[in-house]
Design a protein around this nucleic acid. Sequence first.
DNA 1: GTTAAAGGATTTTTT
DNA 2: ATCCTTTAAC
Length: 694
Amino acid sequence: MEQLELLNDRQREAVLHWDSPLLILAGAGSGKTRVITTKIAYLIAEKGMDPRSILAVTFTNKAANEMKTRVLLMIPDAVDVMIRTFHSFGAWLLRRNSHLLDLDSNFKIYDDDDSLALLRQVLEKSRGEKIARDELRRYANYISRAKDKNLFPQDDLRSITTDETFDGYYLLYQERLQQIGNVDFGDLIMRSVELLRRVPEVKRRMQQRFQVVLVDEYQDANTAQFHMLEELHSEDNYLCVVGDEDQSIYGFRGAEVRNILDFPDVFPNTEVIRLEENYRSTQSILQVAISVVQNNRQRLGKKLWTQKDAGEPVVLAILSNENEEARFCAEILQDGNYERTAILYRNNYQSRSFETLFARLHIPYRLVGSLRFVDREEVKDALAYLSLLINPRDEVSFLRIVNKPARGIGKATLSKILQVTRGDFLAACREAADGLSSKAKSGLKSLLLALEELQQLLVASSLDEVIRQLIDRTGLYDFYANKDETEGSTRILNLEELVNASVEYGGGVDALAGLLESLALNSSDEDPFAGDGRVNLITFHNTKGLEFDRVIITGLEDGLFPHYRDNVFEEDLELEEERRLFYVAMTRAREQLYMTTCQMRRVFGIVQNRKASRFLSEIPSEIVKVMTSNSSQPTSESYPAFYEGCGVAHPEYGAGTITKKWYNGQDFMVLVRFSEGRTAKFILKYSKLERVNF
DNA sequence: GTTAAAGGATTTTTT
DNA sequence: ATCCTTTAAC
């Protein structure tokens, strides 16, 4: 197979390895995806394996899709290889065995919002009082962590929390979920493990079908996922995991670095192969990245190296505030190489200063994975109606839409309905309708009528037609169309987008279940691989598995990154995870790496003094080029550009002229007379003034 | 039961 | 600074 020729010795060894379990420790940029895809191709082409007998598991849909594409390029036959995320594999397994766990085969996957809503219902009913959101979120988080650890309500939950009321709440939640017949994210893994353990026949079938199990990004596997692999593995099949302990960044959601560290102990006769040659980054970038990550203690240790040249030096820019940070990025982007560049930040909200400036300067940008399509209010509304068509017991969906748009069904009416319900909420509505006020009654009737019509349409027509009718018949269209103009029209557009997305699914209940699953599991809709001329704005976490020619890591300030609350790390482990996150961010860069830190930043609307990130002190000063506001080329021009008599514009006050400029010993000040007549004084550095020519 | 005003909380990171 | 929830008024 000619692809083998393209590999280095280590990589080829990993591809050819067979018989015992294999752990590939693959450093950043060491060609890990190439190794996995080539291995799959090799197994099919050279070893004559049936594509159906190969299972490859990843963590993100992005990774799964890329893997699939690359395998297909090598081997067209590979369409039958099962390449999925852990969660999507779990959904597949549970759906075809749903009867064994008393689930509806068209179960809906509750996202975090839905779970929270259900938990609220359950807890408020149990305690008979309103529950504060904080408390609710804490319990929801406990439930997620318990499921990450494969712990059921009956298990010993002391490793999750010492709060003894939690056990009961978890049990109530889980029972309610079971009654409804739906699952949440955690269940996709935990209940799959349950299925494999409880029904030996299913386990045997899976072990026989999947002769090869490959796992990517194994450092991010949680305990439940580990158990899932354990159940899928047998003496007769082949298990191979790939990962990098230095890139484990999902501890907060249950990832266990120990999984990868302990792999050789858990699976006897494991062979370990290290991939240490980096093909992505320049010498300079790699050097900086290594200088930081080597301060971690939780490592197996690798010696990453590259044949590449030193390349451009890594740049650290010390800037005054977040607006200047955005300007610094804009300067770099002046060469127009937008799509080759990524701007990285720790927290989603940090994207705002970039968005504001880029919109003004007409720099096209792509915001990766922030406001997700399925999280939009109007989309969730439509999906709730759809979910109810499949499952009238879906409490969360029912409560969401019963009075949205408003139909005169308020608290009083709702409690009457809830009193007579025995699970099926639509039946309960019919039952309760007679004893209601005429307003509530007619509102309820119109809702039921619309749902009945849609149910008939669902079996008779294509999905896009159902959704089109749904938006109209339920009143969602009018509801959003009557909102203020710009907001209403984007919401309508999103609803239309949902119609478009459904076209390829055909019709019927199964198709609908398929659409809902795909929307639940493929939540990030932006494709970062699409080279469409936009600069990428993206969180550190979201860059996993991606690479860019040019990377700007922003907000390198203590508290922001490493991120912490109350100025303290509870454990060193958290700090180490942050450090790994830095390492991941840096190793995304192929040719040029910039880092920025601000001396001041607006947080909660208040300007704060900031300290540089402690990680920066781990980098030897001779391997970075430091720029400051005053000496750096990109920003030095900003101030001379503002002189007495020149025209300026302010986002709130409009156009004006500088009437006076002076230096107060610390900052440049300007006095501006606006065309509206008012006069205002600004500290130039912090003002939102822009130069304009009249 | 709906809408408007005021007050309070918010900022990790995601399948 | 902005978003969300609670409260007050229609």
